[in-house]
Nucleic acid binder design. Structure first.
Length: 133
RNA sequence: AAUGCAAGCUGUUCUAUCGUUUGAAUUUCGAUUCAAGAGGAAAGUCCGGGCAACAUAGAGCAAUUCGCUUCCUAACGGGAAGGGGUUUAGGGAUGAAUACCUAAAUUACGGAAUAGUGCCACAGAAAAUAUACCGCCACAACUUGUUUGGGGUAAGGGUGAAAACGUGAGGUAAGCGCUCACGAUUGUAUAAAGCGAUUUAUACUUUGGUAAACCCCGAGUGUUGAAAAACCAAAUAGGCUAACGCAUGUAGGGCGGCUCGUUCGAUGUUAGUGGGUAGGUUGUUUGAGGUAAAUGGCAACAUUUAUCCUAGAUUAAUGAUAGAAACCUUUUGUCGUUAAAAAACAAAAGCGUACAGAACCCGGCUUAUAGGCUUGCAUUUUUU
RNA sequence: GCUUUUGUAGUUCAAUGGAUAGAAUGUCAGAUUCCGGUUCUGAUGAUGGGGGUUCGAAUCCCUUCAAAAGCA
């Protein structure tokens, strides 16, 4: 259930280019969320990439810490909030989380913000579906 | 004993749940189980190598790096031992200056007697060919004096970071290494000691600084870095090879920047071969490896024997949560004491436990580092 | 991972090894004005940090910190 394997990560260079050139995005501090639907269905309904910029965090230790915390929060929350909404669609969601904060936040803060971000993502997706229908 | 500084060593532990990378085993191919999974600096990228591709036809110039000696090392701008210099402190000599002895710190330390050039602000007469400001000295002149003139003179003055080697004596019109004694400094020759840098003695000889200014001498340096490189790989552009033709080694290109020299060499037709990119595999973790002992060496280090195999990711694993322990800091209480303090014990609080994350691999250097331990130095207090 | 460049007043730039580090602009104070602006006068304020070479360092050398750019 609470897995985070290689199939759930976004590794392909092509799909990354596609996501950053065509995908839509919104900002919910400290995350900048970009997403795009892709037609090739896979084992998991979403692929994610977590991005912490070298310009904002100079030390590799800080970058690793932020990435690990966000990854852990995503791993624990994605089933309840994200996957249930995507199960009835035969599409792959490409997702990118860019961390745009300035300092090192504790785990609880990141957890709260991640839940809010996922809620906003699902609501925007559903709204778009209604519009297209 | 406390505090501070410097150097070296070390670099918190356990349990539960969920998760991750690699390997092995099982498998109903869904997965399950087991094992392993960051450092002393992994950092900075400051040096040196291995490895790989390209280039290999060289010579000269240019550019650039290093620079006491011997040794260690695969190599180094690294390290060890030594020599010289500089600074500081102390010591006992001397008329004084210097030198001498001892200890500590420090040193990018080839060459200014192997050539040449540049620079030395301000101040000062003068900053390197001493154009003599004051002063000193004799000579000449007449206006006979606080005079003028052309000379000699670097002992004294003041300036400066630095003033033509320092101190004393002789000598001199006055002076001057002009001469002498002692001493500093530069090189050469001889002798002795040392592998050598160099040291000591004697003779002769030199006397501003600056080469982290240009430069000279000696020794070196090919370029690019795993985003190197090899292989696998469906469709499509294009490429390569051979033959013929054009041209006759021409335009132009390669050989690090230039010159010489050397080498390739335009467009077309036919035939053959073959695969840029997405992605994957190798490179890639057994190595100038670690640990222990013995031997050699003042030491850096080397040799031998035994033993061990210990991360391998690639949008990038090694984590998150909860609990407990250890240590640290603060507060409170008990004990202790004449009184306080220290020590000890107990309790509570603290998102207190550093610096920091492998990315092809090694050897160094540099920098960062809570707490603990060891050593050295400095300060303060107490006792003798 | 690799390569390279740059650090000077609050800001934009100068300065041949010679130091009182300069200019514009900004800020503050004063004058002018009924008030403000303009103008004039004066003040303010800097060589990223540490060490070395030198008589003397913003400049030369070493080291470190920060910022920026490039390589698919």
């Amino acid at each position: 259930m609470n897995t985070f394997t290689k199939e759930e990560r976004l590794c392909s260079k092509k799909s990354l280019d596609l996501l950053f050139s065509n995908g839509s995005s919104f900002l919910l501090y400290p995350f900048r969320v970009s997403y795009l639907f892709h037609d090739t269905p896979a084992k998991y309904p979403a692929q994610i990439v977590i991005n912490v910029a070298k310009k904002r965090y100079k030390r590799a230790v800080d970058r690793n810490l932020i990435k690990r915390r966000t990854r852990e929060v995503y791993r624990l929350q994605k089933c309840n909030l994200l996957y249930d909404n995507l199960l009835n669609k035969d599409k792959l969601l490409l997702l990118s989380l860019q961390f745009v904060g300035k300092k090192i936040y504790p785990y609880s803060f990141i957890e709260k913000k991640m839940i809010a971000a996922l809620h906003k993502l699902t609501s925007t997706i559903n709204a778009n579906d209604i519009e297209t229908i």
